[in-house]
Computed example of a mutant assay.
Amino acid sequence: MSRSLRTRFKLQIAFILAGSLLLSGCANTGSSMLDNDAGPDPRLTQGNDAQFFSKSGYQACAVGAGIGILSCALSNSNNKAVCAVAAGIAACGVAMGANYYLDQRRSEYADTSTRLQKMNADVQQDTQNVIARTATAQQVIKDDQARIAQIKRDMANKKLDKARAQTQIAEIDQNIARLRKDLTNMRNKATEYAKVADMERAQGSSAEIKQVDMSIMKMNAKVASLQKEVDALYSQRSAITLG
């Protein structure tokens, strides 16, 4: 296959990816707008930290990557295919998968040491995102625990407003579901980083790999800590049966 044909093929793939990403983003937005049921606590959906782990990697970067890829295709860039891939990695990072992430980083940084330093910075940034999300989650969890405690007191004193309690329990269930979804996406990111580290490790061990491993370990520890808090809330909620 000639170079021109390869470039054209890559560009076609970029167009397809852009279209699918944009459609995914639009479809996701539309479905949420059509949902008339009460959602989770607004602090879990509207805060500054809500964007990082609320969706799967593919969904999370859909619109941003799609727009970037289309911009490349319409630009005067000499290498539209490379531009398109760069737009994707800027919007998605490791969220789009270990192979995608590593291929792009290798195209940017031929030196393994520099590449690993960049990856380590990415892991540390996502760890900070986990910490920010945890802070928000803890506020919501604390309030939900207070509501559960009040429902228990009202049940014990035979003063329970059942309809109100059912609404509150439904809201707490929504919060737990949202946080569990976030946790799944957090773990997925950490897993993809670990895959990248293993692929780089095959090229030879280094001090940078050890630093990346430590950063991934710290990220996993933060995720595990949040998991415990969500599990504790679920246990407290599960102890309530309104009948």
Rank of each mutant, 00 (worst) to 15 (best):
M1P: 06
S2D: 06
S4Y: 03
R6I: 14
R6V: 13
K10V: 05
A14C: 00
I16M: 08
I16C: 04
I16V: 10
L17H: 01
A18F: 07
G19R: 03
S20T: 03
L21C: 04
C26Y: 13
A27Y: 11
L34W: 04
N36M: 05
D37R: 13
A38Q: 14
P40E: 08
D41A: 03
P42V: 06
R43F: 08
Q51C: 11
F53N: 05
K55F: 04
K55V: 00
G57E: 03
G57M: 05
Q59E: 07
A60Q: 15
A62N: 03
G66T: 02
I67F: 11
I67Q: 11
I69Y: 03
S71M: 05
S71Q: 09
C72G: 07
A73Y: 07
S75C: 06
S75E: 04
N78K: 05
N79H: 01
N79F: 00
A81Q: 02
A81V: 03
C83H: 02
A84R: 03
A91N: 13
C92R: 00
C92H: 00
G93T: 05
G93N: 05
A98N: 05
Y100T: 02
R106G: 09
S107W: 01
S107N: 09
E108Y: 03
S113A: 14
S113M: 07
R115A: 06
L116F: 07
L116A: 08
Q117F: 06
M119L: 15
N120T: 12
N120I: 06
V123R: 07
D126K: 09
V130E: 06
V130L: 10
T134M: 10
A137H: 05
Q139C: 05
V140T: 10
V140Q: 05
D143M: 12
D143L: 13
D144H: 10
Q145E: 06
R147F: 00
I148C: 06
A149C: 00
K152L: 12
R153V: 15
R153W: 07
A156I: 09
N157D: 12
K158A: 13
K158Q: 12
K158W: 02
K162W: 01
A170R: 15
A170T: 15
I172Q: 11
I172E: 07
D173E: 13
D173H: 11
D173S: 14
Q174F: 09
A177D: 04
A177P: 01
L179C: 09
L179N: 08
R180W: 04
K189N: 04
A190H: 06
E192K: 12
A194I: 03
K195C: 00
K195I: 00
V196N: 12
M199K: 12
E200D: 02
A202C: 02
Q203T: 02
G204H: 07
E208C: 11
I209T: 05
Q211I: 00
Q211F: 00
Q211D: 02
V212L: 15
V212T: 09
D213M: 00
M214Q: 14
S215E: 08
S215M: 04
S215W: 04
S215C: 03
I216T: 06
K218L: 12
K218Y: 10
N220I: 02
A221T: 09
K222T: 13
K222W: 10
V223L: 08
A224N: 15
S225P: 01
L226I: 11
Q227Y: 09
A232D: 14
Y234N: 14
S235N: 13
S235M: 13
Q236G: 13
R237K: 14
R237Y: 13
R237W: 12
R237D: 08
S238K: 13
A239F: 13
L242N: 07
